[in-house]
Design a binder for these strands. Structure first.
Length: 200
DNA sequence: TGCCTGATTGCCT
DNA sequence: GGCAATCAGGCAA
């Protein structure tokens, strides 16, 4: 089942946790790739200086202020993209950064795009998974409930989280300097496919 | 294993 | 002009 707009139009931390276990699907002419979300980070409008939207709307972060359930993809460090899911009602600049996936389908295509055959190195980081899934800046602002990039609940799950609360750990976020102490990174406990650093 | 650095570009001050 | 929600590779221990 493709997650509907309703799923995203909630509290950002709730969505960040609920996204764990969901499947990101990208259909391209070259083939279809699917990954299970195993690591996310929440970025909040208020009280979170690390959030791109913290200082207000700009050209770069405009999508974060738009309707939820859309992709916010930005370019960073001159060579990488990061993929986020816009959350919270329109006008509230919040999003969830997807930091790691467990590769499920289209693994040969991911290997080709990433130029490696190491399964644990295909999607274990925000820049890596964008590369492995074949995403680009063109998808910035696209809805995630209507292809080519969509997020699905695994069969037999609805809007509720697909994982037990006890299976989720919260840690400080990665690679930021501001508000570095806030526990807004969420991972599946003991998952092999998360980006390296763990800080339980 | 873990720390340090270079690569490379658009956006914001 | 500075910096950024990163990554890969090099080097030391």
């Amino acid at each position: 089942m493709i997650l509907p707009l309703l799923f995203y139009e909630r509290d950002t931390v709730t969505v960040a946790r609920a996204l764990l276990g969901m499947r990101l699907v990208h259909a391209t002419p070259g083939g279809r790739t699917v990954g299970r979300i195993v690591e996310t980070e929440a970025y909040l409008f208020n009280g979170d200086p690390a959030c791109h939207a913290h200082k207000g709307k700009t050209k770069r972060n405009a999508v974060m202020f738009g309707p939820p359930g859309h992709a916010y993809i930005y370019f960073v460090y001159g060579m990488y993209y990061c993929f986020n899911v816009v959350t919270a009602p329109e006008g509230i600049g919040e999003a969830v950064l997807v930091r790691a996936l467990e590769p499920l389908e289209g693994i040969p295509l991911m290997e080709k795009r990433r130029h490696t055959r190491a399964l644990h190195n295909l999607c274990s980081g925000p820049g890596k998974l964008v590369q492995a899934m074949g995403m680009s800046g063109e998808l910035n602002g696209c809805p995630l409930y209507r292809g080519p990039l969509t997020i699905h609940a695994p069969d037999s799950f609805g809007l509720e989280s697909t994982v037990q609360e006890a299976e989720i750990i919260a840690t400080p976020r990665i690679g930021i300097t501001k508000a570095a102490d806030l526990p807004l990174r969420f991972c599946l406990k003991g998952n092999q496919f998360a980006s390296r650093r763990t800080h339980p």
